[in-house]
Computed example of a mutant assay.
Amino acid sequence: MHAVYVTGPGTVAKLEVPRPTAGPRDILVKVRACGICGSDAFYTQIGGIPPRQGETPLGHEPAGEVVEVGAEVAGIPLGAHVVINPMVAPSGIIGNGGATGALASYLLIEDAVLGSSVAIVPDHIPFAVAALNEPMAVARHGVNRLEPKPTDKVVVFGAGPIGLGAAIGFKLRGVESVVVVDLIPARLETALEVGADAVINSAEEDVVARLVELHGNEPRRPGESRPGTDLYLDAAGAPVVIDTILKNAKHGAKLGIVAVHKKPVEVDFGSILSTELTIVMAMGYPTEIFEVTNDIIEHWERYAAIVSDQFSFDDVEEALATAATPGAADKVVVTFD
């Protein structure tokens, strides 16, 4: 079979490797779709995933079809369509430093347990949409960390895949208002398509003034203008986002950070002390990997809007290059015959 490996700094290759065989407690999945994450570009840039040396397998957002089932595996039938938890593989995180990656023709799931290592999705769900399960779990963890209530007014900064997934998550939790902020018009159109109540183009509009219009004004002192936004989610990773929120958050607001900030961000705790702002961080998906699956199944057409580009596995190098090029695509998914 073929699998994609980082072969050196800035280089990837599709290599021919032995097709695995399922043992008594394993299943073998024919990969039918695999999303490309921003981390894949980072791993390629640095030449692998520490502490592994040499060739490093890529891909951790798979969906596929079960083609072999070990004799001791329960509840996972042959032919089932599945999404996969890359975190629990005994040989290391799939596509994140482990021995296997999901940008491959087949993927061995060792010690396969339904509800822990895999979840079954109905056959009518497109594999490219099912492959969103892993990043949507990341988005859902960001939503869960903010503990939204139906009366909350929410702002999501960043309309990439995680921000869009979070916007859907907030709407499915029934919050009063979800506003999405970005500076790319096409992304904002997608935000409206997935259910955002309003969008703000930060390149053209005064974000704070627009939020006051949408969420009301809750100043701390006379003459001041502060949006009545209850929850802020940073899915952009830009220092200006944090600065804007800290300077304008109302008393008792919450800020969740799911974005990866590659440089330190300065925070003046003295200036925000009186706001009693709560700041929470969100990384990964401690419990959400299959929590989000049922929502994807029920609302798959809404989630489908997040997939911006699809490439055949024959063109996987082009897919990786496109995903790594700023502004070239939002969510790239590789599909397999």
Rank of each mutant, 00 (worst) to 15 (best):
H141A: 07
E55I: 01
K149N: 13
T151D: 12
E213P: 04
G35C: 07
G79E: 10
D234S: 08
A112M: 05
R25I: 02
I27T: 08
N144L: 11
Y43L: 04
Y285E: 12
V280Y: 03
V31R: 02
A99Y: 00
I76S: 03
S202N: 00
I94P: 02
P50K: 13
M281N: 12
P20D: 09
I84M: 04
R19W: 03
L164A: 03
D314Q: 04
A102E: 01
V73L: 06
I27D: 03
G228Q: 11
F170C: 05
P222H: 13
L132D: 04
N248Y: 11
A235D: 04
A319N: 03
V179S: 01
G64L: 08
N201D: 15
H141N: 15
F127K: 05
D206F: 10
I84Q: 00
V258P: 00
D152A: 08
G216H: 11
N133S: 15
S202I: 00
G35L: 04
V194G: 04
V280E: 11
V212H: 06
D40N: 11
P51A: 08
I49P: 01
T56V: 13
V67Q: 06
V82C: 04
L114H: 10
L146F: 08
L273F: 15
G35K: 03
A328I: 05
L320N: 01
F269K: 00
I184N: 12
P77D: 05
V83M: 08
G54K: 06
A112G: 05
T44V: 06
S202G: 01
F157H: 15
G54M: 06
G223T: 13
Q45T: 10
V292Y: 02
G223A: 12
N133M: 14
A137G: 10
V333K: 02
D330Y: 04
V88T: 15
A22L: 09
A196T: 10
Y303C: 11
E266Q: 14
L255P: 01
E147T: 14
V332S: 03
L58P: 03
I242L: 15
T44P: 02
P185Y: 10
P264M: 10
P326V: 11
R221C: 03
I184P: 00
I289S: 06
A209D: 15
G101E: 02
D206W: 12
L231T: 06
T11G: 01
N144S: 14
G270K: 12
P135C: 07
H60Y: 09
E176H: 14
V175C: 08
D315V: 00
F290G: 01
V156Q: 02
T325R: 12
L320G: 01
V83C: 09
I242Q: 08
L146V: 12
D197S: 13
A89P: 01
D295R: 03
V280A: 13
N85R: 06
V82H: 02
S312T: 09
G97L: 04
